[in-house]
Amino acid sequence: MLGQQGRLVIPAEVRSALGLSAGDRLHLHLTGRRLVLESSQDAAAELRGLAASVPASRSLVDELLAERRRAAIDE
């Protein structure tokens, strides 16, 4: 249920099944029209999985800097 102040109540049985406790930090994101809640550990594991597919020889920082430099020249 969504409270008047926009707070979402997660039922006790769901919290228990997910191993959630009061004060746990959750990450929220939208997938289409769905709201997804993830524990910090699950969100970090997902990011590590995405990063694992990037070859060690590739520098995402260098690519970002080059992209920003090109954009600055085009302005």
Rank of each mutant, 00 (worst) to 15 (best):
L35G: 06
R25E: 08
L35W: 02
D62M: 08
V36N: 06
R33M: 12
L8A: 09
I10M: 07
R69S: 15
E75S: 13
S40E: 05
L30Y: 00
A43I: 00
R48E: 15
R48T: 12
L64W: 01
P55T: 15
A45C: 09
I73P: 03
S16K: 03
G3K: 08
M1Y: 02
L50N: 02
R68S: 07
G49T: 06
E13P: 00
L26C: 09
S59C: 08
G49H: 03
R69F: 02
R58L: 15
V9G: 04
A43G: 07
S40I: 13
M1K: 04
G19I: 07
G6F: 01
Q4Y: 02
H27M: 14
A17T: 04
G32A: 06
E67L: 13
G19Y: 03
E46F: 05
A44M: 13
A17F: 02
V36M: 10
G6M: 03
A72P: 00
H27R: 14
E67F: 05
D42K: 10
I10G: 10
R68A: 10
S21C: 14
A12W: 00
H29V: 03
R68M: 08
I10W: 01
E67C: 10
H27S: 12
R34A: 07
G3Y: 02
E75T: 05
R58D: 15
S16N: 13
E38P: 14
M1C: 10
S16F: 01
R48G: 14
M1D: 11
A22L: 13
E38K: 15
R58F: 05
H29E: 13
L2D: 13
H29S: 14
L8R: 02
A56R: 10
D42P: 06
G19R: 03
D62G: 15
A72W: 00
I10E: 03
V9W: 06
D42L: 12
E13L: 12
G19P: 04
V9T: 06
I10F: 01
E46G: 11
D74E: 09
R70D: 05
Q5P: 06
A45G: 14
R15A: 15
R48D: 15
A56C: 11
E46C: 12
S39K: 00
E38S: 15
V54G: 04
A43F: 00
V14P: 00
L65F: 04
Q4R: 14
R69H: 06
